[in-house]
Design a protein around this nucleic acid. Sequence first.
DNA 1: TTGTAGGCGTTATCAC
DNA 2: GTGATAACGCCTACAA
Lengths: 342, 342
Amino acid sequence: MKRKITLKDIARELDVSISTVSKALKNSEEISRDTKEKVQAFAKLYNYRPNNIAISLKNKRTKNIGVIIPDIVHHFFTTVFRGIEKFANARGYNVIVCISDESFDKEVINMEMLANGSIDGFIMALSAGTQLKNDYNHLREVTDQGIPLVLFDRVTDEIACDKVVINDTEAAYMAVEKMIKDGRKRIALVTTEGHFNVSVKRAEGYYKALKDHKLPVDEDLVLTLPNTYDNEGISKAFFEKIDIDGVLCVNEIYAVRSIRHLQDQGKKVPEDVAVIGFTDGILSKLANPSLTSVAQHGERMGEMAAQLLIERIEAENPYEKDPVYRTEVIKASIVERESTNN
Amino acid sequence: MKRKITLKDIARELDVSISTVSKALKNSEEISRDTKEKVQAFAKLYNYRPNNIAISLKNKRTKNIGVIIPDIVHHFFTTVFRGIEKFANARGYNVIVCISDESFDKEVINMEMLANGSIDGFIMALSAGTQLKNDYNHLREVTDQGIPLVLFDRVTDEIACDKVVINDTEAAYMAVEKMIKDGRKRIALVTTEGHFNVSVKRAEGYYKALKDHKLPVDEDLVLTLPNTYDNEGISKAFFEKIDIDGVLCVNEIYAVRSIRHLQDQGKKVPEDVAVIGFTDGILSKLANPSLTSVAQHGERMGEMAAQLLIERIEAENPYEKDPVYRTEVIKASIVERESTNN
DNA sequence: TTGTAGGCGTTATCAC
DNA sequence: GTGATAACGCCTACAA
């Protein structure tokens, strides 16, 4: 087994000092041609690589980014993560991921674990538990320490930091408006319980579109699903007792399930009922009929978040008193497929 | 801004030595009650936390695990990752993820980046590029250095290390056998190009099941798709020119698309043609008809991989000459849904 | 041109 | 009981 070699090892073998080796490997002008060649050859032969940890300790820079997301099995978070990883990697950063599992406690524990030197900054989307509890002290502690933080998607006004969001309200508005322009009059909304700010914003867009187009708001057409796995019965019952010609769903899972419920009732999509979902993922593409969907451009969101974070990390003066924080808005777009008229 | 506090800071403030502080915080018997209380109170007040990096340098243990996977947007890898993260986190480890993007070069770069002290061990699935190139020197280098490595799913016999796989051949066999027992006689196979060992193994199971049940093997019924995104035209054409009553697909995307192709031709699933896919993900559940699928139990696979790795990392004697490496087989199971008779 | 010394933050050993 | 010292691996200002 070839153990990892250190500067000290090289110095001992070549009978020079550690600092000479260090300088020689950096091609310093101070060192003679001869010594440099000797050291570099030796280093190459034994495949010397500086120890990241030692460098981190010295520089107080880890080149690691901490990402805390509620869930990785959800397509949206996966794509955002992809964007983060891509951008970060290209800039020489590694990504440490923790899943909060929608739990406040796990979010706190994970943040504390990483905040003690393991990372240079955080990118995160708030867990459901945190939003419910409305407690952001763990975030504040991190920012107070001068650790850069970027929030995306599930953000809060309570914390001053860089943010990346999508124009949820507008996107929902556009989606509903599209259906209205296609002649739909009774449009339902399938959403989740309200502590997710994104759901709230999307609902806002839904209501606003109806009002702007002088359509009545009927609360019977709004289904708020609990955040559990087995809520399929609820949505099935919902669709059985309402009469609609359009649905907006806040994610693609609900949308695909809605299509199924409608088809089971003998209704045709899109002829009888149009369906639009959020999250333009694989489900949307492969559904039958394929799903018209609001693309959230998760990957771009992730890249943007990583960019904001790295800029902040590498800023000349990271500890200025009143930094100007940015909130970038990623514009959602509607991808038209078979579940609506086109 | 409250900067992070160190042992030195506490020592200076309380006018004691650094080592006294260190011991006091560890509740050492050597230190007097008084001093301990004083130090601990101060540390608590200023929210002292030891610096992870310094501890890593000292202990030569980072408590980080490196995970290198070809892709995170694929459901299977996502679930495996979930399992890894869960297990690792419970044991106090953090997970650093790199995406190789199916590229040999990225895989190599990422491994080198992490191998220089950033992690205590690797969990990985080989990229397509690596399997194609059949070059495993970067893995060998890592194991030669005594860094524990666990391969999962996409493994190779070239490297001696712990492995976690599923019984692909058997699973495919079972799936085909099920269709045969349901009276299907002309069963197609939709697979990917052969450098993925999993595809090869699944194909083996397919052929073996046909042979064991005395059904003729017809190569016209086997479609090998290139690993590109726009191979949909190819599969469409394939289904138009063959006459079948069953299909086995090596992933759920192909399976859902096959259903669609068949339906477009006016065929009914499962009445006219049965369809079984691999990867029991969200697509399988939400497809219409829902998809009978081979569940790979990715999360369990991830947990197992993490367990093997951590055991190896924490082993008494990590550098023994001839360790006995284990290969754990996760048993796949068939989840029956609407796309086959039941 | 090369080497010494100090420091990054922590811990462990040993001396006082 | 407490503190000085060395070490983990690297870097760099300064001395020789």
